[in-house]
């Protein structure tokens, strides 16, 4: 028989709600400060100091909210699916809580991406909405988030709700590559991605550096809100355990 393959120790520690609660408590202030700094710097630089676009004028500046929220909505879905898979395979309680916390956050981000996209579309394309591949697949992503969220809340048993949500989010993963490559596969109104791993961005550094700062800032902000939600979820589910009682009594 093949030697059984072991995951590193920290992976198993993640499975302990108490360890997770403590470690996120330490990480939280750091992430919050970094997120606030990056978002302020990125927003001020992007909205006030970055040069105007020669075609779109000032209206392009909504990119500093639109792109980060759209990128993050997709990452959030992937995180939800991966966390769901971990909770299905290793029966890890915390992964389940993370997956559950991802659904409402992801739905909010998808709404933000769609709304900013519509506002940007009006002056540039002359219309709020077009039924093009990327917009439609983003809308499907929003529906998937809503589906997972309502499934979580329809099943009373928390463990089974988590499993059912995990199965649904794994099935929905097929949509992610479709969104990602929709602008490259189909000829659509939507412009191609701003950032690519292999190429230099097609815009001047003064424009894309604040965008990059905003993207990283959004990620940090997302990490903060995800940690807050997950910590609340941990306390809610572990309310009968000794350490949560001690925590509450110490307050």
């Amino acid at each position: 028989m093949a030697k059984s393959w072991k995951m590193p120790k920290w992976f198993y520690q993640l499975g302990s709600p108490r360890w997770c609660y403590e470690i996120t408590g330490k990480l939280l202030p750091g992430f919050a400060i970094v997120a606030a700094l990056l978002l302020v710097v990125g927003a001020v630089w992007g909205l006030a100091f970055a040069p105007e676009d020669y075609q779109q004028g000032n209206s392009f500046r909504i990119i500093y909210v639109h792109v980060p929220s759209a990128v993050l909505a997709q990452s959030c879905y992937m995180l939800m699916a991966v966390a769901g898979a971990i909770s299905l395979i290793w029966k890890m309680k915390v992964a389940d809580m993370v997956a559950k916390s991802c659904a409402p956050l992801g739905a909010t981000l998808a709404v933000l991406a769609l709304a900013t996209g519509a506002i940007w579309g009006k002056p540039t394309w002359g219309t709020w909405w077009v039924w093009d591949a990327r917009l439609t697949s983003m809308l499907i992503l929003l529906f998937l988030f809503i589906g997972v969220y309502s499934l979580h809340h329809a099943i009373d048993n928390e463990i089974n709700a988590g499993k059912a949500g995990a199965v649904l989010s794994l099935v929905g993963v097929v949509n992610i590559p479709i969104i990602k490559y929709s602008v490259e596969w189909w000829n659509t109104l939507h412009q191609t991605s701003t950032f690519k791993v292999t190429e230099k961005p097609a815009m001047p550094a003064d424009m894309w550096i604040p965008l990059l700062i905003m993207v990283i800032g959004f990620y940090c902000f997302f990490a903060v809100s995800l940690m807050l939600r997950t910590r609340a979820e941990i306390l809610e589910r572990e309310k009968r355990s000794g350490w949560v009682r001690d925590l509450v009594e110490a307050r």
Binding site: I140, F143, L144, I146, G147, S150, L151, A154, I155, N160, A164, V167, L168, V171, G172, V174, N175
Partner: peptide
């Protein structure tokens, strides 16, 4: 898939549309 996930629920009928239509 939607039917399997909602079969145990009393109000599965509406939920199933929400889960399945995007797919």
């Amino acid at each position: 898939i939607g039917a399997a996930l909602t079969v145990g629920l009393r109000k599965g009928g509406v939920l199933i549309t929400l889960l399945v239509l995007p797919l």
